[in-house]
C-alpha cells in the first residue's frame, strides 16, 4: 500500500454539479508520484471537469482534492502544476516565442532562467525553427506542441494534460509520448485524459470514466486480465455494464 509520501493527488468523494446538472459523482482516487495516470472515457463523460478540479482551477461541489499534501484550490499551488487545456489557448497574433515568454513570466520566470527554460522546452517539442512565426500560421499539431511546451515552461511537478494528442499524426503522437516518459523519468507526475482506447495502453495506470463516475482503476494489463479482455476497449465495455 502506498504511503502518503508517495501520493501525488488524493480525491475524496468529489462531486461537481453545474446548476443542478450532476457532472461528476462520488469520485475517490489516489494518484501516485511519478506515474503517468490516464483518464479514459468518451467525450462528455466528465474528464475535463475532473482535471480542472485536479488543476485547482475549479472547485468541487462536495468532497476534497489534495495535491502534494495541500488542499485545493490554492493559488500558490498553480505554480507547481502545468495545465494544458483541451483547446489550444494561444495568442494567435503573437509568435511562439512571445507566447512562451508571456506564460513563463506569469509563472514567475525571468531573465536567464526563462531563456534557458524556453530553449529547453522548445527543443523538447521540436519547434525550434518556427519560434519567430506568428501562431496563426501554425498547423494544428504545431499548436498542440506549443501548448505542451507552455505547460512545461516552469518545470511543474504535476503535469495535467487534457487530450494532448487530439489531431496529431501518429509519428508526432509517438514523440509526444516519448517526451512524457522523459518528463516522468525526471520525477514529475503526469495526468492525461484521452478518449482513444489504444493510447490508454501507454499509461502506467488508468481510470475509466463514464457518465461522471469512475467505473474502474488499475494498470492497463490488470484491467484487461480482471475482465478477461484482449483490449482496453473490451474492458471498458465490461465495466460499463454493456458486456458480461
Amino acid at each position: 500500500m502506498a504511503t502518503s509520501d508517495d501520493i501525488c493527488l488524493r480525491a475524496a468523494g468529489i462531486s461537481r454539479s453545474f446548476g443542478g446538472r450532476q457532472v461528476l459523482q462520488d469520485i475517490d482516487l489516489d494518484i501516485q508520484k511519478s506515474e503517468i495516470f490516464g483518464l479514459l472515457g468518451p467525450s462528455g463523460a466528465g474528464k475535463t471537469t475532473l482535471v480542472k478540479l485536479f488543476a485547482g482551477i475549479d472547485e468541487a461541489t462536495t468532497g476534497s482534492v489534495d495535491l502534494l499534501g495541500t488542499r485545493l484550490p490554492k493559488l500558490s499551488m498553480l505554480q507547481r502544476i502545468g495545465y494544458m487545456a483541451q483547446s489550444d489557448a494561444l495568442y494567435m497574433e503573437l509568435s511562439a516565442r512571445e507566447n512562451l515568454q508571456f506564460f513563463g513570466e506569469l509563472m514567475g520566470l525571468g531573465g536567464q532562467a526563462l531563456k534557458r527554460r524556453m530553449n529547453h522546452v522548445v527543443e523538447l517539442v521540436g519547434l525550434g525553427e518556427h519560434l519567430r512565426k506568428p501562431v496563426s500560421s501554425y498547423s494544428g499539431g504545431m499548436k498542440r506542441r506549443l501548448s505542451l511546451a507552455i505547460a512545461l515552461i516552469h518545470e511543474p511537478e504535476v503535469l495535467i494534460l487534457d487530450e494532448p494528442t487530439v489531431g496529431i499524426d501518429p509519428v508526432m503522437r509517438q514523440s509526444i509520448w516519448d517526451e512524457l516518459r522523459q518528463i516522468r523519468a525526471a520525477g514529475a507526475t503526469i495526468i492525461v485524459t484521452t478518449h482513444v482506447m489504444d493510447e490508454a495502453d501507454k499509461c502506467d495506470r488508468l481510470g475509466m470514466v463514464r457518465d461522471g463516475r469512475l467505473i474502474a482503476v488499475g494498470t492497463p494489463e490488470g484491467l484487461k486480465q480482471d475482465t478477461g479482455s484482449h483490449t482496453i476497449e473490451e474492458a471498458f465495455l465490461y465495466y460499463g455494464g454493456v458486456r458480461p
Binding site: I57, L75, L78, A85, A89
Partner: peptide, 14 residues
C-alpha cells in the same frame, strides 16, 4: 472564447 482566459487562470496570476 479562445480559452486563453482559462489558461491565464491556470497560472498563479491574481
Amino acid at each position: 472564447t479562445s480559452g486563453t482566459l482559462e489558461r491565464l487562470l491556470a497560472t498563479p496570476i491574481r
